[in-house]
Design a protein around this nucleic acid. Structure first.
Lengths: 232, 232
DNA sequence: TGAATAGTGTCTCTAAGACACTATAAA
DNA sequence: TTTATAGTGTCTTAGAGACACTATTCA
């Protein structure tokens, strides 16, 4: 059926929702923001936060709104991950869900929002039996995040405003699940033009010799990229 | 609004469609499959092929079905490009569209399908004033295709079953819009493990010394990747 | 034979990984 | 002084681009 030959009356009704894969690095683990479902179906199961797209807002705006409601934070990186539209992914009705990926620094706690009571950070390695098709969506989100760390500056989204090279390296090690040579990592990230900007300050919060503090540079795409490669 | 707190009755009604960015290399140009609209709005304008998702099929299946209807060909590479959900992108009603990217070899003609009469291949450089937000979708599709040629074997999707290195190079040159050194290109593509498989045959259809014929190898991800880089 | 395209070899340069070595703090 | 972490330098190797050179066809 082409655009040419449809009339507004013959479209099948769908519900459209957004689901959020919100990731952060906490402790030694990559964590996702999950909410505990209070109602059937999947009552008591963990699920991705999300909700309906309103009639008067764009799908992207709905994602931004939901992210604010769930985390209490705005200005996070947010990008479309994919759209999930199997006929029976929600047993009650035909729901098409547009999933988004957000990367957050280690927020104090799954904050505020009307529904915050049931929300918390869960290490992705310990996640099991999510509601609906959310396990697949979460998996796609984690894989996207891993890939984007290679060729974009998004790793810094997991850090605070100011951070050391070691803190950034820890992000890479935890998200990728590998060990990285501190010396080569340092040379690489400080060598990529526009990735990091030195503040001139330093900190000894990591112990040992004080480390220089950096802020995000303006660059989005890293060249050369930071390729994933394991170390014994 | 969370999943927890909704009931099937209070969802706003949406129409969900799929739009297809079908690309091919024809002559010396990257071309997109477009259809001429026969009805308002945007009557007479070019638009991307597409149509409604049916209630009983997945969104991905709808894309496959529409692609078959438009090109008469199945088995093409097809991937989600993104979802476009601005409130007034269709002036008549609230429509959320999931866009897909397909790469096709140079098909005889925008073939078959009920609506083929109005369909044709249009060089993307000459496209202007598409209906709805289709110009943006097409642009996103072209950019995605350019990027994917770097690190996947999808360039071969533009070629026939058997092809020469020169034919594959022409695909890269046209899609990227740059000139590539034939000698370095040859060394690179034949050096990437699993990318190309020699048939043992050769052809002189390009003139000059006969060129070896290749088939697609099994590999999807190219390592090392073919990086975009211009030549005088 | 000459023009055209296919394909190989070689040089240089960049960047990655391995790892020795120096620097600066706290206990 | 020892220990821990920060940061630099150096060696080796892989791969990219430039480009000379050989190979095989047709007109």
């Amino acid at each position: 059926m082409l655009w040419d030959v449809y009339s507004p009356s013959d479209f099948p009704p769908f519900a459209v929702t957004v689901d959020l894969v919100v990731l952060t690095v906490r402790g030694d683990a990559l964590c996702a923001l999950l909410v505990r479902r209070g109602e059937a179906p999947f009552r008591g199961r963990w699920a991705l936060p999300g909700g309906f797209v309103r009639v008067d807002e764009s799908v992207d705006d709905a994602a931004v709104r939901e992210l604010g409601e769930e985390t209490g934070v705005s200005g996070l990186h947010l990008e479309q991950l994919g759209t999930y539209g199997e006929p029976r992914r929600d047993p009650r009705m035909r729901v098409v869900s547009v999933a988004y990926l957000a990367l957050a620094p280690d927020l104090p706690v799954p904050v505020a929002g009307t529904d915050a009571a049931s929300a918390s950070w869960v290490p992705v390695a310990e996640v099991s039996a999510l509601a609906f098709d959310h396990a697949r969506i979460l998996g796609d989100g984690v894989e996207r995040a891993r890939a984007k760390l290679e060729y974009t500056s998004l790793g810094t989204a997991f850090c605070g405003e100011e951070f050391t090279v070691a803190e950034l390296r820890r992000v890479y090690e935890i998200v990728w699940g590998v060990g990285l040579d501190p010396r080569n990592f340092h040379r690489k990230v400080t060598g990529v033009g526009g990735f990091l900007v030195a503040t001139g300050e330093s900190t000894s919060r990591d112990g040992g010799r004080p480390a220089a503090l950096f802020r995000r540079g303006g660059v989005e795409v890293l060249y050369p990229p930071l390729v994933r490669s394991p170390v014994a």
